[in-house]
Amino acid sequence: MLLHDTAIIFGRYARQTLASKFQILFGVLMPLLYLLFFGPLLTDLPLSSSAGSWQVLVPGLLLQLGLFGASFAGFGIIVEKNLGVIERMRATPVSRLALLLGRVLRDALLLAFQAVLLVLTAYVMGLRAPLVGILIGFAFVGLLSVSLASLSYALALTVRTPQEFGPVVNAVTLPAMLLSGLMLPMTLGPAWLDVLSHFVPLRYLVDAVRAAYVGDYASTPMLYGVLAALALCAVSVTLGTRQFRRAGA
């Protein structure tokens, strides 16, 4: 039943996304701009002893795409909630977990598609990385998207207006971006910043994808990244499902 219900919910929102070509491409615009205008600045900088600068930058841009793309996923559900669509669905026997999963899978798939576009562009600009590493990178984007979209829906179901939602999301995503070393590796900075950044779960995902991009699969950063991503995902999906169970209560 969970699979059936998830497929129904996924189908409904996937059709809405496909109807809006603009939405499909718009999300990839920001990381693409970074790639085009920020990437060339780094080409000759010694960011890492073992990796080219594209191998450092692209993992960061991929997770940045996931971070911003998924964190705002909840916006649409505020409108749906005010229209009564959520209550109408909750009055049916549909699985509460499916109400969440159907939506976040749509989000994760959209972001994975945008991630592929990003990597293809990066390849044209000079990125060279092992295929397995690139695929691992997509998996991390998927997990991060599922997690953050779940949290975003959970938050959106507790607020009444989009005006209450936006500031909270900004207050979380911006520090997360700065403190996780998305743009430049944290090891380049002073020790206190590096220490602080270890309290941001996203940091471990970034390090893991950077390790994957240089073929360093059996490494500590990879282990920590997988653990952090799975833990974040479990907590977020649990919180999100709980909100669908008692939305508006």
């Binding site: 219900d5 059709r15 749906e80 229209l83 669509v85 209550e87 109408r88 009055a91 026997p93």
Partner: peptide, 25 residues
């Protein structure tokens, strides 16, 4: 259950709402 404010999405077609609802049941 029909809520006071209803519960359909204005941007979705009548058929799609009815079919999806039936699938949810």
């Amino acid at each position: 259950y029909v809520a006071q404010s209803g519960g359909v999405d204005p941007n979705v077609s009548v058929r799609e709402e009815l079919v999806t609802q039936a699938r949810l049941y």
